[in-house]
Design a protein around this nucleic acid. Structure first.
Ligand SMILES: [Mn+2]
Ligand SMILES: [Mn+2]
Ligand SMILES: [Zn+2]
Ligand SMILES: [Zn+2]
Lengths: 144, 144
DNA sequence: TCCTTTATTGAGAATGCTTGCAACAAGGAA
DNA sequence: TTCCTTGTTGCAAGCATTCTCAATAAAGGA
């Protein structure tokens, strides 16, 4: 069963209509622990021998984000990734040289975000964003 | 005069060729204190009665970013903005409801970034990134 | 000054994502 | 169960950005 039902119920309660397309997309990203691009969602849909238009995938994923059921973020590789709340709030450190992605845990950012919220009266919502820079390895090799 | 010369010299020293297109683009974003999109740079070029291909504008701006002479960031409105170093390192708080952009100053983030660099051995390069959320006003009006 | 090397450009195709709109169908009322 | 309202979908066009590749032109050497 998992949380799919909870997700769908929450949407229905918000007044959204539950279509087969939405059910399928919610099921896919709720069961997948990692990040997914819209295109990856599409591929899994195709494997299930049905088909959904890519625009619908984007619309559904963005709707989940707007309702706090998923987060959306840019991995710096030209593609946008989505993940359910299960994935947890954190920062991605994206190396602009080798493309590696390191995840910063919630603990390491919560104090900072609280400070921002206080100082700027801003509700940092999906705590899922990217900082671009150089990873340790690339940083060293660049000196040579 | 301004820092255009410094910028161009730095590029030449790196082995880049100085073309009229690059000179013009560097001059434009070096003199403009605020963020600019590639399209905005293009418009100014056109006003000067010359013409540069849009791909060249993107390539040049990205080259400046790679060499630390400019920073690049997503304002959450579907367009990417660029700015010279003069604009200074900071965070953008982008309200996903009204689209407002609040700037967080360097002071408020430096301690946090240092902590990240230590813990994760990651060189946070252009300290120019965005956090999406809700601004104070939109946060309040959403309760009703 | 002219030549050679090779980085850079412009043009256009391609990619990732969004939008407008007419056809369609979920969900509630009768 | 049938009908209506209106949210949702698919499709195609549009937009921002990137990529490929042949033609061009900086920069340095002769
Ligand atoms: Mn992540
Ligand atoms: Mn800024
Ligand atoms: Zn790296
Ligand atoms: Zn707002």
């Amino acid at each position: 069963m998992s949380h799919c039902h909870t997700y769908l119920k929450k949407l229905r309660d918000q007044g959204y209509r539950i279509t087969p397309q939405r059910e399928m997309i919610v099921q896919i990203i709720a069961h997948c622990g990692k990040h997914m691009s819209a295109e990856e969602v599409m591929e899994i849909v195709r494997e299930k021998s049905s088909s959904i238009n890519i625009a619908t995938v984007y619309r559904t994923l963005d709707m989940l984000v707007e309702n706090g059921l998923a987060s959306k973020f840019d991995l710096g590789n030209g593609k946008t990734a989505y993940a359910t709340g299960k994935h947890g709030p954190h920062i991605h450190l994206v190396c602009k040289h080798c493309g590696s992605v390191t995840e910063v845990s919630e603990n390491d950012i919560s104090a900072f975000l609280e400070r921002i919220e206080d100082l700027y009266d801003f509700d940092c919502h999906p705590y899922h964003f990217s900082i671009h820079g150089l990873c340790g390895e690339c940083s060293n090799s660049e000196i040579s």
